[in-house]
Design a protein around this nucleic acid. Structure first.
Length: 791
DNA sequence: CGGAACGTCGTTTTT
DNA sequence: CGACGTTCCG
């Protein structure tokens, strides 16, 4: 979330809004009569910038100046007075893209870009909207955004609460179902019965509903909800939808090929009124289908928005001729595409090379040596990338680079805020900020290890569930009783006291000081200092970075939001290093020289993609290959190995069919240097092993097998209405005493059965606390939720 | 309750 | 093969 959030929205406070075409707007337009920002655009780009009215689809091939069009278009809208910065909705997928776009707009039009408060990711904009109307969807405006790990823990609880064996029906699987439903814009009541039944013998739908209810109780949402709840808000409150439709005079979407159904519906609702929606994307770069992205969204654009202007950007400014032709020839093999022909005016340059290696180790060695050679020729290492299909390929390559002493960096990896130490630290702060945050509390109650293990947590849970109070609240009661053994009881009490103390700190300290104190006093920093594993130092460093970054925020609340949505590791390392990453992570980047190892059937195209999604899967894999090639400016080098270890055992492999998809004129087969010993293969030319070029002899079983077409998921339109059975938030705050207890029929002298201590006689009643003389265990103070009356 | 021995299962991952 | 989670024992 950007920092301009706290600035008042001019539309909220001021009535004055210069209408398009008004005097002031025209005067403003006249300030820049020449529109210098339009200079240097090619005719298609310029058309895309100037076609401001109505639906527009810009099909922007790789390296055709997509971002430039987007930013110039925004600048144009503002400079001509067609819209004020805050009347433009500009959506991206990543925070990085949003940040870059903001920067580039500033370059064109100066600090006016600061007023663009609706430039951000789908999720950050969704959050902003939801916070304003949280009560209408059963949340409070300070709701928490859950990360994947919290989601999983919550689902596990829901599964167990339904009495389902979590081992047979893993939470991960439920998570992916729910994720899929949310991606398609389906709430618990809209999931097709057949699908809902697929999990846990027909309980899938019920679990989804239960999960959503738990989220509401916790005043929390997951990533999917940030969009889904907006949809619900707008459908149930048309007046609010209308507000936003009026506000957003112009809408722009980046990477449209990656939108899922929920995002599509979200956009369509907003665009319905004014229809000034401009989507920029490239169907040939859609590589996130498995994550819910619907290529169909882009393929169907003209149908969904009748009268749409479609503009193709086909002039490539990035790659040399052979690379571009190779990539074009490859992608032309795909059926489901809108079709573009990339062209360049650059020289043909070097052909794409194809090199066969004996095994993956040789492949790594070859790449390593070529990089060394480039380095010797003063080729900057930062302009070299190695792009792999799966992360598992990285290890061997890394090993080789380390041996050779070639500096490299891995791009991708776990995001900053996903790292355990960061999530832990945040959990502490969340509890300090909001003691009712059960998920956070559970996460750190025994981190560092303080002897509050499963048994203790179970006791807390029992009471919390029975009394319908948050865990911390439950804990507060329990430490007053004998439910826990003395040691955990004392530990838990100390912890609660600490949290009480930490909460007060924020009255006198800045939040980064609070964080520092909490992390130290809780023993968390100690834990890592004592840890002698290799990455402990890095984790401490990350924690420091976290504390440092907190200083920039006005309060803990806004920091927590930033971190759950936006925060990322500072990758802006300008050092001279080779970049190593997956093909997915490479999208949007470019390098002079790109190495593409592992072009083998089964690995790339990946067997699993083929098995699961058939032809669609193959085409997505091919798009991935296309993305890989088009990352290269001057040199693309493809490799395959004849032998590769898969799951520990060696398999002999066949070059990828994608190799055969490349036009012959643009590629060059390179023989591996002669000094390699190709173990076991007597004397023959190494070309023998590259045979598959001549005859396409692949016969992947899974490729034929799986033609299963994923159910086209365009249902769930607008008609679906939530039954109004939503319960108000049950979150019980502050001092509230457990309700379920009062007058629950326990009286002095009554006989009760305790879950642990067995039968006994009540000696005294104090609220929900009972003093019981147990037949075997003696006299104990217990909570009513742990006993039942004996008739 | 926590460390050590077992078993399991293997893509890609913007938020 | 090796990273992870689960189980089992002290």
């Amino acid at each position: 979330m950007n920092h301009s959030d706290n600035r008042p929205d001019p539309q909220d406070s001021l009535a004055h809004e210069p209408a398009a075409g008004s005097l002031s707007a025209r005067a403003r337009a006249a300030v820049a009569p020449q529109s210098p920002y339009l200079n240097g655009l090619n005719p298609e780009q310029r058309a895309a910038v100037e076609a401001t009215e109505g639906p527009v689809l810009v099909l922007a091939g790789a390296g055709t100046g997509k971002t430039r069009v987007l930013t110039t278009r925004i600048a144009h809208l503002i400079a001509t007075g067609k819209a004020q910065p805050w009347q433009i909705l500009a959506v991206t997928f990543t925070n990085k893209a949003a940040r870059e776009m903001r920067e580039r707009i500033s370059h064109v039009i100066g600090e006016v870009a600061e007023g663009m408060q609706w430039l951000g990711t789908f999720h950050s904009i969704g959050t902003k909207i939801l916070r304003r109307h949280a009560e209408l969807v059963g949340l409070r405006s300070d709701f928490t955004i859950l990360g994947t790990d919290d989601q999983l823990r919550l689902m596990k609880q829901v599964i167990e609460a339904e009495g389902i064996d979590e081992k047979r029906w893993p939470a991960r699987q439920l998570a992916s179902h729910i994720d899929g439903w949310k991606n398609r814009g389906l709430g618990p009541d809209q999931v097709p019965a057949g699908e809902a039944g697929a999990f846990a013998n027909g309980k899938g739908g019920r679990l989804y509903r239960a999960y959503q209810e738990r989220l509401k109780v916790l005043n929390a949402v997951d990533f999917g909800d940030l969009l889904l709840e907006c949809l619900r808000l707008w459908r149930e409150h048309p007046d609010i939808l209308e507000q936003y439709q009026n506000r957003f005079r112009y809408m722009l979407v980046d990477e449209y090929q990656d939108t899922n159904v929920a995002q599509y519906l979200w956009l369509r609702l907003l665009a319905q009124a004014r229809k000034n929606l401009c989507c920029v994307g490239d169907d040939d770069q859609s590589i996130y289908g498995w994550r819910g992205a619907e290529v169909d969204n882009i393929l169907r654009f003209e149908h969904d928005f009748p009268g749409a202007t479609v503009i193709r950007l086909e002039r490539n400014y990035r790659s040399t001729g052979h690379i571009l032709s190779a990539a074009s020839g490859l992608i032309a093999k795909n059926q489901g595409r809108l079709g573009k022909t990339l062209r360049t005016e650059d020289e043909p340059g070097e052909k794409v090379t194809i090199t066969g290696a004996w095994d993956s180790e040789d492949e790594a060695r070859l790449i390593g040596e070529e990089i060394e050679a480039f380095h010797a020729k003063k080729h900057p290492l930062s302009e070299i990338a190695i792009l792999v299909r799966i992360s598992a390929q990285m290890r061997e390559i890394e090993d080789r680079l380390v041996t050779l002493g070639v500096p490299y960096r891995v791009i991708g990896g776990p995001r900053f805020y996903e790292r355990a130490e960061i999530r832990d630290a945040l959990a502490y702060l969340r509890v300090v900020n909001q003691p009712a945050d059960d998920l956070a509390f559970e996460r750190i109650v025994n981190t560092p290890k303080r002897g509050l293990g499963d048994a203790t947590i179970q006791v807390l849970h029992n009471h919390a569930r029975a009394a319908r109070v948050p865990l911390t609240e439950a804990a507060r009661f329990i430490v007053e009783t004998d439910e826990l053994k003395p040691k955990p009881r004392a530990t838990l009490r100390d912890l609660l006291i600490s949290f009480g103390r930490w909460s007060k700190l924020s009255e006198t300290m800045t939040q980064s000081e609070v964080a520092q104190t909490v992390l130290e006093e809780s023993g968390y920093t100690d834990m890592w200092q004592k840890d002698k594993s290799a990455d402990a130092a890095g984790r401490l460093e990350n924690l420091k970075e976290l504390v440092r970054s907190m200083e920039e925020f006005p309060d803990l609340q806004s920091f927590l939001e930033h971190v759950s949505l936006v925060m990322e590791a500072n990758e802006s390392d300008t050092a001279e290093r080779v970049s190593l990453m997956t093909l997915h992570a490479a999208k949007g980047l470019e390098f002079d020289t790109v190495f593409l190892p592992g072009w083998e059937e089964g690995l790339f195209p990946n067997q699993r993609a083929l098995d699961e999604s058939g032809r669609a899967g193959l085409e997505e894999e091919r798009r991935l290959a296309h993305v890989g090639l088009t990352r290269a400016r001057r040199r693309a080098k493809i490799y395959f190995a004849s032998n590769r270890r898969i799951h520990g055992l060696w398999n002999s492999t066949v070059p990828s069919r994608f190799v055969d998809d490349l036009p012959e004129t643009n590629v060059e087969i390179v023989e591996a240097p002669a000094n390699f010993s190709y173990g076991g293969y007597g004397g023959g030319s190494r070309f023998d092993r590259m045979q598959p070029f001549s005859g396409s002899s692949y016969q992947t079983p899974g490729w034929q097998r799986a033609q299963a077409h994923r159910a086209s998921s365009e249902d769930g339109g607008y008609s679906a209405r939530r039954s109004g059975d939503r319960r108000g938030p049950m979150l019980i705050e502050g001092e509230l005493v457990a309700k379920s207890t009062g007058g629950s029929g326990f009286a002095v002298g009554g006989r009760v059965l305790h879950t642990k201590f067995g039968p006994g006689t009540i000696e005294a009643v104090d609220g929900n606390k009972l003093t019981v003389e147990f037949d075997k265990a003696g006299r104990k103070m217990v909570l009513d939720s742990f006993v039942e009356a004996l008739g």
